[in-house]
Amino acid sequence: MTAAITVTGVEKTYASGFRALKGVDLEIRRGEIFALLGPNGAGKTTLISIVCGIVKATAGRVLVEGHDTVSAARITRSLIGLVPQELTTDAFETVLATVSFSRGLFGKAPDPAHVERVLRELSLWEKRDTQIIALSGGMKRRVLIAKALSHEPQILFLDEPTAGVDVELRRDMWAMVRRLKAQGVTIILTTHYIQEAEEMADRVGVINGGEIVLVENKAELMRKLGRKTLILTLEEPLPAVPDRLVRDGLALSADGTELAHSYDAKADRTGITTLLADLAASGVRVKDLRTEQSSLEEIFVNLVRTAAP
């Protein structure tokens, strides 16, 4: 399987001296939904801008479907649709005019049927003759998506598409993303909503301080996420784990007041019943219990914290 996008050693230092990217290597597979997570200023938008040709990389190269984004810019750019983070739209153009403009700009012959289809899918057809300035923020977001889809791109970048968007539009948008994926479009999205990445993405990448700190299959991540910990607060502190209770995944806290049992929540047998029975048999009395589960958010926060300078 060819990669849709291959980023090799890409660095970016802005004129101000700010190092936005410090040698990024990343491969996006054809047809996948890839979620790029990272805090503000991590380099997400810079990376996207370099792939789309808006920002020049200081070093490194980017291949889109095997074509270099600098030497074969015409080919790579026509393959990509970009929905930017900011709501930057023309003010006085009509919806239909601005979407048709985008199609032409990307070198495609006029195709009113395709433009109509895109507008209908985004519930914009009724607004086609409205000036953009008269649209709500959510509608403008839809216009930006329609512009990006006007030239039938193979790769779609969604830079924080759901920032400031209401629930209904968010749901519509994800439905559309799934439809596009079914048509074979590769989708790269950046988001702050980790829940979204969890729900939508095939793979997740985390960028922080201009470096990719993690790329993983979502399934793999979910497996990590599937681990839960049952924490039992004891009435009396224990000096050590009683022999009868010793097993994998069980640990006693330093002060002896808590027992932590780590288990796979998705497994058939979690070992909780046996543990509780053994506790009773050993005469250990439990005052309270709770469970803990690491979320993607927690993993993300930990990654970002450890990587921070």
């Binding site: 789309c52 040709g53 808006i54 810019a73 015409r74 080919i75 750019r77 026509s78 990509i80 970009l82 930017p84 900011e86 930057t88 739209t89 023309d90 003010a91 985008s102 700009l105 990307f106 070198g107 512009k147």
Partner: peptide
């Protein structure tokens, strides 16, 4: 377009 930011589209287009 530079002022409003819509220039991004022209800059990312195959032109």
């Amino acid at each position: 377009p530079r002022f409003t930011g819509t220039i991004y589209e022209v800059l990312s287009a195959p032109v």
